[in-house]
Amino acid sequence: MKTSNPVLARLGQAAERERAAGYAPAGAYGQPSGQAYPTAAGYPTQAGYPAAPPTVQPMTVDDVVVKTVTLLGITGLSAAAAWILVPDAMLFGAWIGAAVVGLVLGLVISFSRVANPALVITYAVVEGVFVGLASKVFQEIAGHQGIVLQAVVATFGVFFLMAALYKMKVIRATPRFTRGLIAAMAGVFAVMLINLVLALFGVDTGLRSGGGLAIVFSLVCIVIASLSFVLSFHEVEEGVRLGLPQRYSWTAAFGILVSLIWLYIEILRLLSFLQGDD
């Protein structure tokens, strides 16, 4: 099986080895060949072969959908709990703490070669706290009433639009598209990091202050975040084609969740700029 993604290719090869390990000839597991072995039901297998261990279940699109909905539910519940339970006096500290912890967890999951459902679920909980507190700041503290509902509707509207465009093959994750989008994402994150460092030293670059430059930058981030769904859909498609183990559906769902959260925050920020300080 061939794919342009070397990571997916390695995972596909690992899946083939796992599936091959699901069948063992007589004499495996230290038993003499030719002997009948009891199965789970208590009956010997045919020709004296031992009962094969369960084969590795390949992931499906449905697996990814279920995991994505599950993570979204966890994120939503965590966000609601943070909104209600975190007092205003601790709001900004908890918000920054959740952002830092979420970033670290995201990097660990992204660079790990092993799917870890527990780690992905933990990320969803932490990001739920971050999203909930960010939403509270924009709507309650900054006074932009109704902005959260508007951002949620816009976020899922963009998501379903990108899913439809990908399904109709209007946009495809070609090698050139992938390289260009990854470069754009790296550039945007570098600009964000530099802007954050400068802000800590009291330097206002105007990227997040609500002016014309801030609106343009938010629009650029929204476009890139929207296009990142194409990479996520492509990874799901390739993962299913390569027969990756079912547990990797958690990793695929994680990628979609990251894009959804980024898109939501950028739309929330843009809406706050457009509404002004009223």
Results as ranks from 00 to 15, higher is better:
residue 219 L to H: 06
residue 169 K to F: 07
residue 168 M to D: 06
residue 197 V to Q: 08
residue 182 I to W: 00
residue 211 G to K: 06
residue 201 F to D: 10
residue 165 L to W: 14
residue 217 F to S: 13
residue 160 F to A: 11
residue 175 P to E: 13
residue 207 L to T: 06
residue 177 F to T: 02
residue 169 K to S: 15
residue 179 R to M: 13
residue 212 G to N: 10
residue 202 G to C: 09
residue 215 I to E: 06
residue 194 I to G: 13
residue 183 A to P: 08
residue 199 A to D: 11
residue 192 M to P: 01
residue 210 G to A: 14
residue 218 S to G: 10
residue 183 A to Y: 13
residue 169 K to Q: 15
residue 181 L to H: 02
residue 197 V to A: 15
residue 198 L to A: 10
residue 208 R to E: 06
residue 161 L to K: 00
residue 203 V to F: 14
residue 189 F to T: 05
residue 208 R to F: 12
residue 163 A to N: 12
residue 178 T to K: 05
residue 173 A to Q: 12
residue 172 R to G: 07
residue 196 L to Q: 07
residue 220 V to Q: 05
residue 184 A to E: 00
residue 208 R to G: 08
residue 177 F to V: 00
residue 167 K to V: 11
residue 195 N to Y: 02
residue 214 A to M: 11
residue 161 L to T: 12
residue 220 V to M: 07
residue 174 T to R: 09
residue 185 M to D: 01
residue 177 F to K: 02
residue 206 G to R: 04
residue 196 L to V: 01
residue 162 M to Q: 14
residue 204 D to R: 07
residue 182 I to R: 08
residue 162 M to F: 04
residue 219 L to D: 12
residue 174 T to E: 07
residue 171 I to D: 10
residue 183 A to G: 09
residue 218 S to T: 05
residue 180 G to R: 04
residue 196 L to I: 01
residue 160 F to T: 09
residue 170 V to H: 00
residue 210 G to N: 13
residue 195 N to K: 00
residue 204 D to K: 07
residue 181 L to M: 04
residue 202 G to N: 07
residue 216 V to N: 03
residue 220 V to P: 05
residue 191 V to S: 01
residue 177 F to G: 05
residue 204 D to N: 12
residue 180 G to L: 05
residue 209 S to W: 01
residue 167 K to N: 12
residue 183 A to E: 10
residue 171 I to G: 07
residue 168 M to I: 11
residue 213 L to D: 02
residue 195 N to C: 05
residue 196 L to H: 04
residue 171 I to R: 07
residue 213 L to C: 03
residue 216 V to I: 15
residue 197 V to N: 09
residue 166 Y to L: 13
residue 211 G to M: 04
residue 187 G to Y: 03
residue 177 F to D: 02
residue 190 A to L: 14
residue 181 L to D: 04
residue 216 V to W: 00
residue 221 C to K: 04
residue 194 I to S: 11
residue 166 Y to R: 13
residue 214 A to D: 15
residue 211 G to W: 02
residue 210 G to I: 15
residue 165 L to K: 11
residue 176 R to V: 08
residue 203 V to R: 12
residue 206 G to F: 02
residue 169 K to M: 09
residue 217 F to R: 13
residue 167 K to R: 15
residue 162 M to E: 13
residue 221 C to I: 03
residue 179 R to I: 11
residue 206 G to V: 02
residue 175 P to Q: 14
residue 171 I to V: 15
residue 162 M to A: 10
residue 165 L to D: 06
residue 200 L to V: 02
residue 170 V to R: 08
residue 175 P to H: 14
residue 200 L to H: 09
residue 184 A to S: 12
residue 216 V to F: 01
